[in-house]
C-alpha cells in the first residue's frame, strides 16, 4: 500500500464512530479496503457481524435490525452497489435508516479495467436511490464525514452512502 502507516488509522476511526452511534449489526461482503474495520467488528462481542453472500442481503438485514430496535451498517465495495438497487426500494418505501460505507474501485490507479464500469456509476446510482452521498478522499476527513452520515441516517430515518475513495484506500497490489 502506498499510504504511510500513520495515515492508515481511518478504519479505526470508522469503528469508533460506529461504536459511538450504537451500531449493533454490521453486514458485509468481504473487501480488502474494509479488512481492518471488518476485523475490529468481528472481534467485538457487542456487534453481530454478518457476512453476506451478496450486498442486497445487507439492505434487508438492516431493515430487520431496525424493526427489532437495533442500528445496522452495511459495508461493501463499489461493485456491490449494483447488487443493491432493487432492494434499496425496501429502505426507500419504508424509510428505514440505512448507512452504507462503500470502498471504491475503478477510479484511481486501477489496474483491473473491469472495475471501472460499476465504479463510475456508484455516486449517480446512490443519488438516484435517494442516498445522501459523502465522499472521503483524505484520511483526516473520514471521521467527520462518517459522523455526518450517521446523523443523517439515524437522526431522520434516511439513507446515506459514505464513499471511501480509492485514493484514500490506496491501490491494490497485484504483484508482490
Amino acid at each position: 500500500m502506498n499510504a504511510p502507516v500513520a495515515a492508515v488509522d481511518w478504519p479505526d476511526k470508522l469503528y469508533a464512530t460506529l461504536k459511538r452511534a450504537g451500531i449493533r449489526q454490521v453486514g458485509y461482503v468481504p473487501d480488502a479496503g474494509h479488512a481492518r474495520l471488518i476485523d475490529r467488528v468481528r472481534a467485538d462481542p457487542d456487534i453481530h457481524d454478518v457476512v453476506l453472500t451478496t450486498e442486497e442481503e445487507g439492505i434487508a438485514l438492516a431493515a430487520g435490525a431496525w424493526l427489532g430496535g437495533q442500528r445496522a451498517v452495511l459495508l461493501m465495495q463499489s461493485s456491490g452497489v449494483g447488487n443493491c438497487v432493487n432492494m434499496l426500494s425496501l429502505a426507500r418505501s419504508c424509510r428505514f435508516p440505512l448507512l452504507m460505507m462503500i470502498t471504491m474501485r475503478g477510479e484511481w490507479e486501477e489496474f483491473n479495467p473491469w472495475q471501472q464500469p460499476m465504479g463510475s456509476i456508484v455516486e449517480p446510482v446512490m443519488k438516484l436511490s435517494e442516498a445522501e452521498v459523502y465522499r472521503a478522499t483524505r484520511p483526516e476527513e473520514v471521521e467527520g464525514l462518517a459522523e455526518r452520515a450517521v446523523q443523517h441516517v439515524f437522526g431522520d430515518e434516511r439513507i446515506a452512502a459514505l464513499i471511501l475513495s480509492q485514493q484514500l484506500i490506496g491501490k491494490k497490489v497485484w504483484v508482490k
Partner: peptide, 25 residues
C-alpha cells in the same frame, strides 16, 4: 406482521436482522 409488497428475495434476511435484534422473541 411486517407485510412486504416488494423487496423480493429479502424476507429471510429481514427475519435474520430482526431475530438478532430480538433474541427473546
Amino acid at each position: 406482521n411486517f407485510y412486504l409488497w416488494g423487496a423480493m428475495g429479502g424476507a429471510a434476511m429481514i427475519g435474520l436482522g430482526l431475530a438478532l435484534a430480538q433474541p427473546d422473541k
